[in-house]
Design a protein around this nucleic acid. Sequence first.
DNA 1: AAATTAACTTGACGCTGTAAAGATTGTATG
DNA 2: CATACAATCTTTACAGCGTCAAGTTAATTT
Lengths: 201, 201
Amino acid sequence: MIERESYHHKNLKNQLIDKGIELVSTEGLKSFSLRKVAAACGVSHAAPYSHFQNKDELLNAMQCHITAEFSKALEDTITAYGDSADVLAHLGKAYVVFFIDNPHYFSFLYTQSTVQIDLSFSDDVGHNYAPFETFKGLALALMEKAAYPKEKNKDAVIALWSFIHGIASLATMKNVRYDENWEEKISDFIGVFNCPFLSAI
Amino acid sequence: MIERESYHHKNLKNQLIDKGIELVSTEGLKSFSLRKVAAACGVSHAAPYSHFQNKDELLNAMQCHITAEFSKALEDTITAYGDSADVLAHLGKAYVVFFIDNPHYFSFLYTQSTVQIDLSFSDDVGHNYAPFETFKGLALALMEKAAYPKEKNKDAVIALWSFIHGIASLATMKNVRYDENWEEKISDFIGVFNCPFLSAI
DNA sequence: AAATTAACTTGACGCTGTAAAGATTGTATG
DNA sequence: CATACAATCTTTACAGCGTCAAGTTAATTT
């Protein structure tokens, strides 16, 4: 017998997503279960099936929410440092910091996700993974300004994205030991590569 | 009733590891279960508990086996191209190719693993994640040869490792669309960064 | 030959995702 | 207002899962 003011929960769908994200960020994906989220929302174990076809569909909704949050963090960085010469370095830092602040998000977004990421520079920009499009847009603008050879543009964007992505991956693995502070070291890592359009932080 | 020549299976432990790896590489980690591996080996569902304390311990053994295989792939590359000016580029290529050939291995090794990776350049080299030590050793030697500033050595190794690691990560995500051939593009990606010790492939 | 240990089976437990059927509520229609 | 209907939630049920405990068989030691 579930106790609640009214039989109907009204905002259950959104609450499932919120509580679900909370559970993943605190306890990780491994111990995540539909029944736990349902219990955390005070409903029966099968209630989620009124709003999601199955577990994966809830996970997908959670991933979309986190992706939007991530995208906003990147955009805020551009807003703050857009005119600075080292925007791109700041953007990379923001990328890594977002996942360092929420270590469980990384593998959740990038190894469990069904959210599509199009690295092919196709025209359907509006529907693509927003964080990548944000990164791409800024990087291309800077390359233009630095008169970087146009035929190398696509490769440069993907190389940079991979680089930052790789740092975030290592920085959020709990079985990796690194005595330095990832966040403070990012500018040093970027400094290893002499890109004309890449300023140090 | 399980049918087998003899009651004792003898080599069950190793067979569990091998069949387990086979299952992970074909069907992925998500659908992997102890009971399936046991069945695949023709033993009862609790038989693995004679050789492993729990599921995680079997997974760990599987990860160690794959890591050794990965390490060998890297070492073979050094053996083959050790005297060439672009060894490091070849090594990066081998890194990525290993995981492209076995896409399930990447997240299995890097987001589920308990295998420790020490990026801190501590002295206990013998017990560290062998693939990283192999990479590190070669990179440091090349930097020495190229008279790369010593104080930047550690940062350069980690930056490069992150970069290659990031490419492998993106290349093995099934929800990433990329119309080019990752393997063939790696030299182009490396070319984006002008490192004195990094030759193009 | 007997005793001991290691390897494996069987059966059970609680937890999981999910399907089906029933109950309750909100809403639209006469 | 009353009735019908659709949406939301509960209950029950089932198979698969990891794991434990107890029992069985084979190999090893004494």
